[in-house]
Amino acid sequence: MKENLKVREINILSDIKNLSEVRTSVSRFLLAEGMDESQIVDEVKLAIDEALTNIIEHAYQLQKRKKINIRLKFAKDKLTVILRDRGRSCAWEEIPEPDPKRYMREEREDGWGVFLIKKLMDEITYRPNKGEHNEMVMVKYLKGGEGR
């Protein structure tokens, strides 16, 4: 039987100034789907913010006019977020866990985003150069669903 999914879509240009608008839209979509548990809304919003920041800063190297597609698929037991870009792909699995003490010594500010996404979401799949784009799929299981 085919699962009945509701899909919401957001398309933005790769300008860091668009992060706030995406967070607002994601909150609105989640609340409209009855996800009123504030911790889940906060976690999904932050994971999307972190993933978009990575795309803008690393995949698109801060170019502001590149396209990013975000889709949110709502099912009874889980939320799936799919982000697509056409920038440089990254070796997602090779990104090390952040080392706060080393970062302090090196006065390094970045390097936290992937770790934070992994902590906030239940499943993450990154497919570099899938077709014409990179695709990141993030899954959050909802109460009563698998993995909870």
Binding site: L46, E50, Y103, M104, R105, E107, R108, E109, G113
Partner: peptide, 14 residues
């Protein structure tokens, strides 16, 4: 977000 956290790590040594 982590960008906000990172700025404090970047200056704490100094």
């Amino acid at each position: 977000s982590s960008a906000g956290v990172g700025v404090f790590i970047g200056v704490i040594k100094r």
